[in-house]
Design a binder for these strands. Structure first.
Lengths: 139, 139
DNA sequence: CTTTATGCAAATCTTTTGCACCTGA
DNA sequence: TCAGGTGCAAAAGATTTGCATAAAG
């Protein structure tokens, strides 16, 4: 296991969200956040990457639990797509996506690339949590 | 089975998409399109409704096949949501949705309610198929 | 008669759950 | 110690697939 100099930071981060900094969670934090660029992933893909060539594997259930916990804590954002697979994004800033139906790949669209000049009022008693634009593209 | 005066219309519609007008497809057409308002559904819900109190049931596999065929033919639109369930919409016109995370319900937003003043250029070799805005709401 | 669709059950895939064991505070 | 987390395997839920039968053209 690679020891990240960011480990302490992740411990704090987890603590501040009332999540115990367990080995598994820290490992997943490092994998997700020790990088220059944000990225998209599915749980299946994350599981494969995390458990590739390691002695002690993190169980799939724990990966599911952790991704959900991180999403609730605001470390990850779930991306809307069609079809039955959940995509997550380590970029939690407001932004949008191209979704290529052929390759099923997602590409970020920077927030400033889309401008909404008119947004509807939410139904009574509800407030807007977020707004996502997905542009489906094809050849 | 209720005989719709729109039956002939559906036969034509199916033929024009190279889909054989089978009993099952016509039944589903009637259920989906013989109404004043468009609506959203999941395959599971459609299956229940179609097969409620009928002598000869349409099999679930056929319902899946038909929904896919109708989507490819442009009679239905798949809606983007989180989580592993596909929603379809009989409203194929460009429009958007509120998605209530609590109740998991979708509400239409008329396309004129949202105005985009800036839309990005799609990647090379690709073109925009459609653009959807999903506004997540919560209490 | 030939092609395409249907029905059923089994298979697959993703996600959730129950529960015994472990671990961080 | 003890509440919360993990691992495993089983269960659940959604969708797909294979194949024999039936219906459409």
């Amino acid at each position: 296991m690679i020891i990240s100099h960011n480990l302490k930071m992740y411990v704090q981060k987890l603590r501040s969200s009332n999540l115990r900094p367990t080995k598994q969670r820290l490992k997943i934090c490092q994998f997700l956040f020790d990088r220059k660029k944000t990225f998209h992933f599915t749980v299946e893909a994350l599981n494969k990457k995390i458990n590739k060539n390691v002695a002690t594997k993190v169980s799939l259930a724990t990966i599911y639990n952790t991704v959900e916990a991180f999403t609730n804590a605001g470390y990850l954002k779930e991306i809307l797509t069609s079809k039955n697979k959940s995509y997550y994004d380590t970029n939690i800033k407001s932004h949008h996506h191209f979704y290529d139906e052929g390759s099923k790949e997602l590409t970020d669209i920077h927030y400033s690339q889309i401008k909404l000049s008119r947004v509807p009022v939410p139904p009574k008693g509800k407030k807007i949590k977020n707004l996502e634009v997905v542009i489906r593209i094809q050849k």
